[in-house]
């Protein structure tokens, strides 16, 4: 297998904030008649000349205050946002760990949802069939797999969604607050599966406000501040300084 790699070069991203999202047509029309129309939006730099190189085997944590550009950086790396300037190159299949239930339709059966889920990840048909078998075994859903998920109990639904989210093992894994909103008891039961899932990834990029998790998972920490990389280095060095800055 080729070495996975992420290279972010001089990436800047101008975000345009629209103050009234719903009134765009009206603005477009009135804008035709007024010579000078009021600014309906403001620009700001969500990412400012970010350079980052992540190599095979790294587990990297991204920290920073709210709005520092952590999630935006993840979206640029994932290819969801196109940077305004600069470039992002990735080697290896890149996937986010989806929040529990993303892309699930309540009217569809568990099996139908898994087919969609597999297709979102770009799997082939035979891979999806294997995935369904594996998930039925893990979740113990049995014949409920062909029942619309809206009839599932919360526990069944969680098991299915968790199993689906961790079934496809990407080379580059993107985690945005992975444990947020999870059911603690179930996550306890699923720890082993989660661990296997994490171990399978050759690169993990992890954003979290829970610094203990960063401490446990990551050897390297990137500290984002107002769209810039403020510090980038070993976890043991960067994290204490970040903690001090936050506490002070």
């Amino acid at each position: 297998m080729a070495e996975s790699e992420i290279i972010v070069e001089q990436v800047s991203l101008h975000f345009r904030l629209y103050h009234e999202k719903g009134a765009d047509l009206k603005q477009a029309i009135t804008g035709l008649f007024k010579r000078k129309h009021r600014e309906s939006h403001s620009d700001f730099l969500a990412l400012n000349a970010v350079d980052l190189r992540i190599v095979h085997g790294e587990r990297i944590g991204i920290v920073g205050h709210n709005g520092a550009g952590k999630s935006t950086l993840l979206k640029v790396i994932s290819g969801i946002y196109t940077p305004t300037t600069g470039s992002v190159r990735t080697v290896g299949r890149i996937c986010p760990l989806l929040e529990i239930g993303t892309g699930f339709h309540h009217e569809l059966s568990g099996r139908e949802n898994l087919y969609l889920h597999g297709a979102i990840y770009g799997l082939h048909r035979h891979e999806i069939v294997e995935l369904v078998d594996e998930i039925v075994a893990f979740t113990g859903l049995g014949e409920f797999i062909d029942t619309p998920v809206k009839y599932y109990s919360t526990g069944m639904y969680m098991r299915l969604a968790f199993a689906a989210a961790t079934a496809v093992k990407p080379e580059i894994l993107i985690l945005d607050e992975m444990f947020a909103g999870g059911d603690a008891e179930f996550i306890g039961k699923a720890t082993r599966r989660m661990q296997e899932f994490l171990d399978a990834a050759s690169i993990i990029v992890f954003v979290s406000h829970q610094l203990e998790l960063i401490e446990r998972f990551c050897q390297r920490v990137v500290w984002m501040d107002h769209g810039r990389v403020r510090e980038d280095g070993p976890m043991a060095e960067v994290l204490p300084r970040y903690r001090a800055a936050m506490g002070g």
Partner: peptide
Amino acid sequence: WRYRLFIVQLVRIQLLL
């Protein structure tokens, strides 16, 4: 073409729903 299976799933869901 690369996402053909995804498209097939979207079509199926649209009809199923």
